[in-house]
């Protein structure tokens, strides 16, 4: 991903800034300009979501895209945040055989890939089993 495209979303990559729709009272992540259910009746405001949730499903990537080859095998998951939205993330600090559906996870700030196709190293949020439960 090119640097401008990355930096545009920096705020939401480093913290889980999404939007909350005042009409349907649903949270969305990443931020949207229109609430997909309320459309013209959208009343969106920025909201910082708690970086905790649980694994809805996951896979273990053995065949990686460019820039991720040296991380294989790694766990990718869809996490449902405690405040509603779902997101795709890598699960770290977790043995592959320990991953499970329903597993609680929390956000952690990490390097995303070694060196992006365009040079810079990108950082963002990944998820891990909560420290307290270890």
């Amino acid at each position: 991903m090119g640097a401008p495209r990355f930096w545009r979303n920096t705020k939401s990559r480093y913290n889980l800034y999404g939007v909350r729709c005042g009409t349907c009272e649903k949270n969305y992540f990443p931020p949207r300009k229109i609430c997909p259910s309320c459309r013209r009746a959208s009343k969106l405001e920025s909201v910082k979501l708690k970086a905790s949730g649980e694994v809805v499903t996951y896979t273990i990537i053995h065949s990686a895209p460019e820039g991720f080859e040296n991380q294989t095998p790694y766990i990718m998951a869809i996490v449902k945040l405690s405040e509603g939205p779902m997101l795709t993330t890598q699960i770290v600090d977790c043995e592959i055989e320990d991953a499970s559906i329903g597993m609680p996870v929390e956000g952690v700030f990490r390097k995303i890939n070694e060196s992006g196709r365009d040079g810079p190293i990108y950082y963002g949020m990944k998820f891990r089993p909560p420290r307290s439960s270890n």
């Binding site: 996951y58 895209p65 991720f68 559906i101």
Partner: peptide
């Protein structure tokens, strides 16, 4: 979605792998 799926290390087989695991579950 390039910015919120692929960029984070997701692949196409990975997306369908997640559907498969959820379907099994």
């Amino acid at each position: 979605d390039q910015e919120w799926e692929a960029f984070l290390g997701m692949t196409f087989p990975g997306l369908y792998g997640m559907i498969a695991r959820r379907h099994m579950h």
